[in-house]
């Protein structure tokens, strides 16, 4: 692996195929601590599959994933969450019947000492822990701006708020690396501005290392330091936003080998 000491997440040539379809091929990624990396690509390029491989939903066919020096390749998802990799979902997967607060509290699960007997007898430590969990859950809800809706059922939240709640829940696991899967999808432009501010704030306050899948080029180009571009499961480019905007391979992937248009403008037109 790369000898950079502060590479918190190192992915070495992972691949995954479903039947004959090579969903991800030879994907490499090195995330330094505190960085914010974008992962873009047209629909079906394999971005979410990469997330699923990293978080253990799928087992990679080949390659390795190292998180803070620990090999987490092929572990079960809860072990990977325990190791410090947390994610949000593209198609929102909240615990709909539970309250907003409980969703975030569940995120604290992985850091807590949840024994059955502690829960039944309510030992002093258990009580203290529950208080600590509630406090940190409320703090996170405050950060994403949902504190006032803590008691509502998660499924009753508007779409944009559900995405924010997913972020809060993922943060509650105290991750080393946070994977955000299209957090801006379905948000209006105001919400997107707020989301940008939120991500910046996460980096500042939580020292979060973030890997971001996003279709909204405005968001990606604006906040990511470096961007990886996937197409048909392969990495076709990597670089800073400005490098990519003039990269012919990227433009070809997005527009089909047409002229050198501005990705941003065109995507805004054709995008969601």
């Amino acid at each position: 692996m790369t000898p950079t000491t502060d590479a918190v997440l190192a992915v070495r040539s992972i691949s995954k195929s479903f039947g004959g379809l090579k969903a991800v091929q030879d994907f490499n990624l090195t995330l330094p601590r505190g960085s914010l990396r974008g992962l873009i690509g047209p629909n079906g390029a394999g971005k979410t599959t990469v997330f699923n491989l990293l978080t253990g939903v799928y087992r990679p066919d080949a390659g390795s994933v190292t998180l803070a020096g620990r090999n987490i390749t092929g572990l079960r998802p809860f072990r990977i969450a325990d190791a410090g990799l947390s994610r949000t979902f593209q198609n929102i997967r909240l615990f709909g019947e539970l309250s907003v607060l409980d969703n975030v509290r569940l995120g604290c699960h992985v850091r807590s000492q949840h024994g059955v007997f502690r829960s039944i007898f309510r030992t002093p430590y258990h009580r203290g822990e529950e208080r600590a969990i509630e406090a940190s859950a409320r703090r996170l809800l405050d950060v994403v701006g949902l504190l006032s809706r803590a008691g509502e059922q998660a499924r009753n939240l508007p779409y944009g708020d559900q995405r924010k709640l997913e972020i809060a829940r993922a943060l509650a696991t105290e991750p080393r690396v946070l994977l955000l899967d299209e957090p801006a999808a379905g948000m209006n432009s105001q919400e997107k501005i707020a989301l940008r501010a939120l991500i910046q704030r996460l980096r500042k306050e939580f020292d979060a290392t973030i890997l971001l899948i996003e279709h909204d080029m405005g968001v990606v180009m604006d906040i990511c330091e470096r961007i990886t571009v996937l197409d048909y499961g392969k990495t076709i480019a990597e670089g800073t936003p400005s490098e990519l905007q003039s990269n012919p391979a990227v433009i070809a992937a997005y527009l089909g080998a047409e002229s050198d248009c501005d990705i941003d403008a065109n995507h805004a037109k054709g995008g969601r």
Binding site: T55, F95, H109, V110, H114, S119
Partner: peptide, 20 residues
């Protein structure tokens, strides 16, 4: 309690629960 939230999260969405 934490245990019960884990129980309920499984019922609500097993994949998300495991991811958390």
């Amino acid at each position: 309690s934490a245990t019960g939230r884990a129980f309920l999260s499984i019922r609500e969405d097993e994949i998300a629960s495991e991811a958390m």
